[in-house]
Design a protein around this nucleic acid. Structure first.
Length: 424
DNA sequence: TCTGGGGTCCTAGGACCC
DNA sequence: TCTGGGGTCCTAGGACCC
């Protein structure tokens, strides 16, 4: 048996933990740049606010119902997530951190336990330790555990717990689940499935396997097998090494000058470098992209992206920024109102297993700068001790492109000065 | 005025090797 | 009229997830 533990309305719940005045009030959390609604409390869902709605389209509704609106506060959500995960890790021998608000638990060693009772214990303990409400679904495969979790969320009478063991329980759960709500079946595939009159998870489980293999490929076949109780997706206890790292933002206002765009790209590159060093990885490829707003129908549109390979794999902010500037120069076109930019590092290798490839012409080969390497260590050390951004490269500067973040709550759990803040 | 960010996996096709 | 068989690597594009 697998359990899927999923936090309810996670970001909205995080905002509530430290602000009791928000209980029973509709709460929404916005995307970066305060653009879209990306989390809603149950009260906000009941008002008909849809996931992903642009704020400007429902500003009236938010005001009318006195909805509490927050910019996203990732330091808070990340910290609350690790508290939830630490609590879960104490309750079961093996846990897979699946996303910021979800974890799979291996329940195979709980044969002698009453699973329903244990699921309720998990819920109570997480609530008590962290203040975050969760739902628990259990079933013989991960995909079925997802189905179970969804039923636990949708049906208040389940009190946050749904156990699917036995054929009958599984079959009726599948009949109640629309095919587009199955994990791994997105918009495009459900369109294809509906055209074949495959409308529920039960229909998909019963569909001819060769047809599924042909049209939904290997991943779809696995989903089908998992719905039929055959476990294909094992627990993944170690997070696999990252293959790419991306930092990108929409801008608070349009950016037209080279200087502002350069500052943004330098900042994103610096953030990628920090993430690389945290991952213990070095990048051999660097991508820079910049673009105008696709929503401005009348304005001139431009989307520029370019990838360059680096002379040697590196995690050095300075080397990466130099390379990023060269790429930016080649994609930059003046005369456009830029709204977004980003940097991707890829071709990652773990530093500890890095073997330097020597050049046939060593005198031409650019060499890593040993002094800068030490500088990075010192910078990371200072920022670790005194807080993110305590020291940075001068090129990293948010002037001119800073995203909107008007409704930010305090960093309740990660910044001393914010801990004493009381908000009503 | 105002529309997110960060990832993964799979497939097909092209270029190349012997 | 007729032109092999067995591979790898890379990239772009499309699908999915949270």
């Amino acid at each position: 048996m697998f359990a899927l533990v999923d936090c309810n309305n996670f970001y909205a719940s995080c905002e509530r933990v430290f602000n009791p005045a928000l209980r029973n009030r509709p709460v929404v959390v916005l995307s970066n740049n305060d653009g879209c609604i990306i989390a809603r409390s149950n009260e906000a869902k009941a008002l008909g606010i849809k996931m992903g709605t642009p704020v400007f389209k429902c500003r009236d509704l938010l005001r009318r119902h006195k909805v509490a609106v927050f910019s996203s506060n990732y330091p808070l959500y990340g910290d609350m997530s690790s508290r939830v995960m630490m609590t879960l890790a104490e309750l079961v021998p093996e846990i897979e951190l699946y996303s910021i608000d979800e974890a799979f638990l291996d329940m195979s060693s709980f044969g002698r336990y009453d699973l329903t009772e244990y699921a309720h214990l998990i819920r109570r303990t997480v609530k008590q330790h962290t203040g975050i409400p969760v739902c628990v679904g259990m079933a013989p495969t991960k995909t079925l555990a997802k189905v179970a979790n969804r039923l636990a969320k949708k049906n208040p009478e389940y009190q946050g717990v749904c156990i699917l063991s036995g054929q009958e329980a599984i079959r009726s759960a599948l009949a109640l689940t629309k095919v587009e709500d199955v994990w791994g079946i997105g918009r495009q595939l459900s369109k294809l499935l509906y055209a074949q009159k495959i409308e529920t998870a039960a229909d998909l489980a019963d569909a001819p396997a060769p047809w599924v293999r042909k049209h939904l490929h290997i991943t779809g076949s696995r989903v089908q097998a998992e719905l039929n109780g055959k476990s294909c997706l094992p627990m993944e206890l170690l997070r696999p090494a990252k293959q790419s790292i991306c930092t990108s933002r929409s801008f608070g206002k349009s950016v037209t000058t080279w200087e502002e765009l350069h500052r943004a790209v330098a900042t994103f590159t610096g953030k990628c470098a920090v993430k690389l060093r945290k991952e213990g990885a070095a990048a051999s490829l660097l991508t820079v992209f910049i673009g105008t707003s696709p929503f401005e129908a009348k304005a001139a549109q431009y989307w520029g992206t370019k990838t360059a390979s680096l002379p040697y794999p590196t995690q050095d902010s300075i080397a990466l920024q130099r390379a990023a500037q060269v790429i930016l120069e080649s994609v930059f076109r003046s005369g456009y109102a830029y709204k977004k930019a980003g940097v991707i590092v890829s071709g990652l290798m773990l530093v500890k297993s890095l073997v330097r490839t020597l050049s046939l012409f060593p005198e031409d080969q650019p060499a890593p700068n040993e002094r800068d390497k030490k500088l990075m260590l010192v910078m990371d050390g200072i920022n670790e001790r005194y807080g993110r951004g305590a020291v940075r490269l001068a090129s990293e500067n948010s002037e001119g492109w800073k995203p909107n973040q008007e409704r930010l709550s305090p960093y309740y759990t990660t910044r001393w000065n914010d801990i004493v803040t009381v908000r009503v």
